[in-house]
Every structure is written in structure tokens, then in C-alpha cells.
């Protein structure tokens, strides 16, 4: 691996582009600019990115946005707020994409997450294997009292 030093430069550039997406996913991300910044032609950039991450830059951007939406839907933000907070500009396309990836609409996912969050607060032992709970002396749902 260390003998292939010139390739290391390419890797760093692609990693840099990936980190750029991680940081700026909520904004309008111009992948053409990311390719230019990395010093590659768009075609070369997309191919290298897919070789390394198993997804095209656009597919990766979408997966980061959906991943962040999953986190934010577990907070008190509305679906609309989550949609715009992760970089989508249309609730319809956000909902359709989310449902295709996750199998539930954002609203349904949020409802299930809320119920789970409340259950973890009130009856946490339903979410802890008994062997661990007993070892730790957690025999009652102690945070609910």
C-alpha cells in the first residue's frame, strides 16, 4: 500500500469531497464544483468516488440527508422543518424518497420514534437484555420513578 504513494493524493482528494458533502449536505451542493475542487474531471471523480464509497456522490449526498432526517425526526421538529433542514426543497420529493428508502413516510417514522422514545423513558427495561440489567442491579424501571 505504501508503495502506491501517488494514489494517496487521489484518495485524499476524494475523501475531502466526501467530507465536504458530510459538512454541507444541508445546502445546495454542486457536485460539479466538488469535482473541480478535487482536481478531476466529473467523470473521473464520480468513478473514483463510487469505487471508494460504493455510491455515486449524488447517491451518497442523498443517503447523508436521509440519515440526518432520521435523526431529526426523533426530535421535536416538524416533518416540514426536517425536510428543509437536511437540504430538500420539496416536501413531496422528501416524503417519496424517504418512504422508498425507509419503508415509512417521515410522519409515520416520527410517530413510531416518538412512541419508542417515550417507552425508553418510562419502561427502559423493555429495551435492555435482562442479563445485563440484572448484572447492573437494574431490576426496576428506575428512571420512571
Amino acid at each position: 500500500m505504501t508503495q502506491e504513494y501517488p494514489k494517496q493524493y487521489l484518495y485524499r482528494q476524494v475523501v475531502r469531497a466526501k467530507l465536504y458533502i458530510d459538512e454541507h449536505f444541508a445546502e445546495t451542493v454542486h457536485l460539479d464544483n466538488a469535482a473541480k475542487a478535487a482536481g478531476f474531471s466529473k467523470f473521473h471523480f464520480v468513478r473514483l468516488f463510487r469505487d471508494i464509497y460504493g455510491k455515486t456522490p449524488h447517491q451518497y449526498l442523498t443517503s447523508v440527508r436521509i440519515g440526518r432526517a432520521i435523526q431529526l425526526l426523533q426530535t421535536d421538529l416538524t416533518v416540514k422543518q426536517v425536510c428543509f433542514a437536511v437540504g430538500f426543497d420539496s416536501i413531496t420529493s422528501f416524503t417519496a424518497l424517504f418512504k422508498r428508502r425507509i419503508g415509512l413516510t417521515p410522519a409515520a417514522y416520527q410517530q413510531i420514534s416518538l412512541e419508542r422514545r417515550n417507552e425508553i423513558k418510562t419502561v427502559p427495561l423493555r429495551h435492555i437484555p435482562n442479563c445485563f440489567a440484572e448484572k447492573k442491579g437494574w431490576t426496576k424501571n428506575s428512571n420512571s420513578r
Binding site: I120, K121, P124, H127, I128, K136, W138, S142, N143
Partner: peptide, 8 residues
């Protein structure tokens, strides 16, 4: 994060 529960 899968489960984050305060147990006291």
C-alpha cells in the same frame, strides 16, 4: 445511537 436510556 440505538438506545440511550437513563437508568438513574
Amino acid at each position: 445511537v440505538h438506545t440511550d436510556a437513563e437508568m438513574g
